[in-house]
Design a binder for these strands. Structure first.
Lengths: 344, 344
DNA sequence: CTGAAAGCGCTTACAG
DNA sequence: CTGAAAGCGCTTACAG
């Protein structure tokens, strides 16, 4: 069981140079001659040496690790998001320390575990943190950015899509197509995404003096959306158009309407979802959906975070991206859509 | 911009004790009096101190980090797997350094990036590694375990479900229910999961002297399964039962059959998938599927890895778990199923 | 360009 | 139980 730990000193001895030289060989931009570098690499590959990133992190006070906190990986929107984050950070030479939170739990108890590993920066997804914790990160010099969440007055950048405006647009689309009675299937109540989507939708309905919106909660899950749709149609007043706070609930609602309730989509009821997850495009659904510009949002998040790591003076940013409408077959829409869209 | 770095020396000074005492206060089982410990924690919380895990890792030669390599997070089977791994490792006090590989690329180039961070162990999912790389890990004393992949003669443990036996069982189910012409929609060709499922399926069909199996490739994607199903029915000989190497292809195949081909499931064609992903249970599909015991597989993986971290003498293991059949509505089945199953 | 030396922030024998 | 000291494996001024 000879666990060999080969260090820069071993390589130095083998190569006949100093330990500093070995270190310089692995530091791009360090002043070292080609000849020395070659000797070092030859010795290193002979011994199977690789620098120890932990030791490097300690002395250089840079771990090159980014912490990502993610709740809700089961929600199909987030695997695609995580995939993009991973690719972006890997491309830029960062490692990712991943933490899973329960959905929308307060993550104040979790963060110290990340912070003790001296992550250079922190991406927080689908969770919120207290302003005390954010201040603590600021004091440590660890920049934090919230992805797809907005918390006012907190020492963190944030990147969101314009959920309020998206909600307003859906209301306009439904009403302009002649729908009379709109309904909203809510996600998790205390999330900013759910609140903003609902607020935009309902307030626009009020402005246009349409029938008050019906409402049920679907907890951002398929089963929740399925049950919420059934409840909506047990009432006296039935909707002819439903805006679902995310796609997975919309798919559940579609199955409930077509299966148990024998309703046709979009002839009897129009449905619009949010996220444009992969299954929204499946032939069995062809769900019309609001597509957040995930690529742009991830890029903005990574860029802002890395900029702030490299220059702590850069001020916080609260970035808001506009959404697209993806037109498929689940909703009757007006002639003139009035917002950016693609047809699939 | 006063980035304060508070160290154990600062806390020691504040508490009026030695730096060793501060360290001991944070080491469970260390010999330290309650009084000293209290003084240390009081000073620490006053100063906002938290031990530096990077420094601890360096001196203790234990990073407490596990590396997870995952390809294919877009495949809905894997987010559920990642979620379980994260919960298990977090519960047991380990951090996770995540790496994303392209699907089934050789990850030899990727591993050094993980190894330089001195991970205590390595879980590799849906990728393979060369035996050279595995030997390298052994030499470094870093245990490796393959999840859902098996590579013969490689210095790593592995945890799989019995894909060969599962394939045989599906053949038996189809034939015993009276199907005449079976077909297989393949996943990614060079993966052990695909090869084993196909081998079990085809070899059992041969043993029972049924019609030779038809075959198309679906690349483990929805769209791939959709197109593969269309191709199957463009031929002279048409199947009356299809085994899909994973669920997501099965859902694509179902949409192709019911949509473009106007066939009824299971009246005209039976379909069985593999993985039992969440959407297999959706009302729009109700796919009959083979369910690997993911919870047991993850537990076995975590247990074997942690055991080997704590005791390097423990031999490698190649664990094989048996699958269940989840009976829904997409396949005509015989009276007597002959394997463990649940009805949903 | 090169080497000797200090130091990152801890853990852990060692001696008391 | 407690403290002084060595050392984990590097980076980076400093002097030459």
């Amino acid at each position: 069981m000879a666990r060999e730990r080969i260090t820069s000193f071993d390589v130095a001895r083998e190569a006949g140079v100093s330990q500093s030289a070995v270190s310089r060989a692995y530091t791009s931009g360090a002043s070292i001659s080609k000849a020395t570098k070659d000797k070092v690499f030859a010795a290193a590959s002979k011994l199977g040496y690789q620098p120890n990133a932990i030791a490097r992190s300690l002395i250089s006070r840079r771990s090159n690790m980014i912490g990502i906190v993610m709740a809700d990986i089961i929600n199909p929107f987030y695997p695609a998001v995580l995939d993009m984050f991973m690719r972006r950070f890997q491309e830029r030479g960062h490692r990712v320390l991943l933490f899973m939170a329960s959905r929308d739990q307060n993550i104040d108890d979790l963060l110290p575990q990340l912070l003790e590993y001296q992550v250079d920066g922190l991406v927080i997804t689908s969770s919120t943190l207290s302003s005390e914790m954010a201040d603590h990160c600021t004091k440590l010099g660890t920049p934090v950015i919230l992805f797809n969440r907005y918390v006012p007055n907190v020492e963190a950048s944030s990147v969101c899509c314009d959920n309020i405006d998206a909600g307003r647009s859906v209301a306009d689309l439904f009403l302009s197509a002649g729908h009379q009675q709109l309904a909203y299937i809510a996600g998790i109540e205390n999330t900013s995404t759910n609140q903003d989507r609902e607020h935009g939708f309902s307030s626009r309905i009020k402005e246009r003096r349409a029938q008050p919106v019906l409402r049920e909660t679907g907890h951002y899950t398929y089963e929740g959306g399925y049950q919420a749709a059934l409840r909506l149609f047990q009432q006296q007043i039935r909707p002819d158009a439903i805006f679902c706070a995310n796609d997975i609930m919309a798919l559940g609602a579609m199955d409930a309407l077509r299966g148990e309730l024998k309703l046709r989509i979009p002839d009897d009821v129009s449905i619009i979802g949010f996220d444009d997850i992969a299954s929204a495009a499946w032939q069995g659904y062809r769900l019309t959906s609001i597509r957040p510009p995930v690529g742009r949002m991830v890029d903005a998040t990574v860029n802002n975070l890395i900029e702030r790591i490299e220059n702590p003076e850069i001020p916080l940013a609260a970035l808001l991206e506009t959404v697209d409408l993806v037109v498929r077959d689940s909703a009757r829409l007006p002639e003139h859509l009035g917002l950016r869209h693609t047809r699939e």
